[in-house]
Write a protein that binds this DNA or RNA. Structure first.
Lengths: 256, 256
DNA sequence: GGTATAGGTTGACGCTGCGTCAAGGTCAAT
DNA sequence: ATTGACCTTGACGCAGCGTCAACCTATACC
């Protein structure tokens, strides 16, 4: 009545290695072990194996399967939890697919679309004159190289990260957060951190630990946000831009 | 101008461990390494890192990212391939979700967990011999689609027929009908007919008009009914299961 | 100069679910 | 006895780092 490990494996369409694996995990011990060490499985073990494989096909992990089978935990509850996970995973995938599709469209859209994207995110070249005036030609050149040197893909990613910051600023502005509030100051900190990710900006300190943008740069940037509607649009309109400017100035005064 | 590993890591929102990992993979070597072994990154490295993280967020693996960045392989092509993978994964997830949902509904519908699943063609195809080994996963998939693709009325009808068959087997067993009796053999015929309605089952005829289940499949199924109490429960307990098994074997020997 | 603190370095294990050798016993048949 | 099929127990590999561990370095304060 007992069957060898291979017999069982072929019967259910798996491998002997898997069965040994399950044995070691304690998930499916053989019903009998010969004096030679051979594993033998009876019908009971076979049934258990079927259950295991069924649950596995449903996507449950081996520990979860052991839980359901051994502790008689109500399968429905476990499956409900599992379903939640699957749904989340599916959503994550859907978002990823959307991102990839968007990126592809942008890539294939050519230069035109690129320009629009650049403007949408943070078009450094658009402000060539201002940047040059304030920070000199080198700052502009290196910044421009950085930006134009990016592929469309990268620009899209930069845009995405920037968008999160913009969204946070916007919601803060809508909630009437004060510029000197902890929340706004935290946003300001993130904003500076984000700025530091842009190479070629004038740095305040030469030390490695403090290399954010300079105080002047940050305050000037805030002014620019207010002065230029295109910037403000990314931060919740005029009110948002003013919040950004004020919060940045406070933050710069205090920390830079 | 160079920044330490921690600076860079915080800048882009990752960890120094990750950067070391990328270094070891050759994906992102530091722009400079101090005599003390410290890694330093310049703007170029920062840009590259941002590209890496963007592609990673899109779900690409590190080798694929290296491909895109180093070999100047057209990103669009790589992304198209990647998109294909993502879509497949999403479909797989969708099927899994459908399966889990179905299982939950069945559980909450009140009856045996695995039994009905197996009837649906989910799992009992695993009782296959070597020749039929290529069935299985595919049977699972098509079985799932078959079931979830049915309308409610269809499902109800199928369930009713299944239940009727079970009831008839049970009453036959209770009346002590013999496996080789005309009555039991008629039930066996109905049983095979019913089986033929489940897609993805190994068929006896390779291309013939006779596409019922194979002889081996039917006898194996009978063995399973006896081996597994949950099946037996649908056919009047152990006695019922044994009747089904014996009758099926006889029928298979004679007619398949 | 000593020391506290923060940050740097190179290993190396852990996690998931097995696939895939490697080296060597066992069994049934020739 | 030999062959060939099957069995056993390790142990590495994969993806992408997290997480110690053990041990330098840099900076700053007293």
């Amino acid at each position: 009545m007992d069957r060898s490990i291979q017999d069982i494996a072929r019967l259910v369409g798996t491998t002997s290695r898997t069965l040994r694996h399950y044995d070691r995990l304690g998930l499916l011990p053989p019903s009998r072990v010969g004096s030679n060490g051979y594993r033998y499985y009876d019908d009971g073990a076979l049934v258990r194996l079927q259950r295991i494989l069924l649950l596995r096909d449903l996507g449950l992990g081996l520990p979860a399967i052991a839980d359901v089978l051994d502790r008689e935990a109500e399968p429905a509850r476990a499956l409900h939890r599992h379903l939640e996970l699957l749904r989340q995973e599916q959503e994550r995938l859907a978002r990823q697919i959307a991102s990839v599709s968007l990126t592809i469209r942008q890539l294939e859209g050519g230069e035109q679309l690129m320009a629009e994207n650049m403007f949408n995110g943070f078009d450094h070249t658009q402000y060539k004159d201002e940047v040059e005036q304030r920070w000199g030609k080198e700052a502009y050149v290196s910044g421009d190289r950085w930006w134009t040197g990016m592929s469309d893909t990268e620009r899209a990613g930069w845009k995405a990260r920037t968008a999160q910051l913009g969204a946070d600023w916007t919601s803060a502005a809508e909630q009437g957060v004060a510029a000197d509030s902890a929340e706004a100051q935290e946003l300001a900190r993130r904003h500076c951190e984000w700025l530091a990710g842009v190479p070629g900006l004038p740095s305040s300190g030469s030390g490695s630990s403090d290399n954010g943008p300079s105080k002047e740069y940050v305050t000037g940037l805030g002014d620019m946000y207010v002065a230029d509607d295109r910037f403000g649009a990314n931060y919740g309109g005029r009110k948002g831009a003013e919040l950004v400017r004020d919060a940045l100035k406070l933050f710069a005064d205090r920390n830079l």
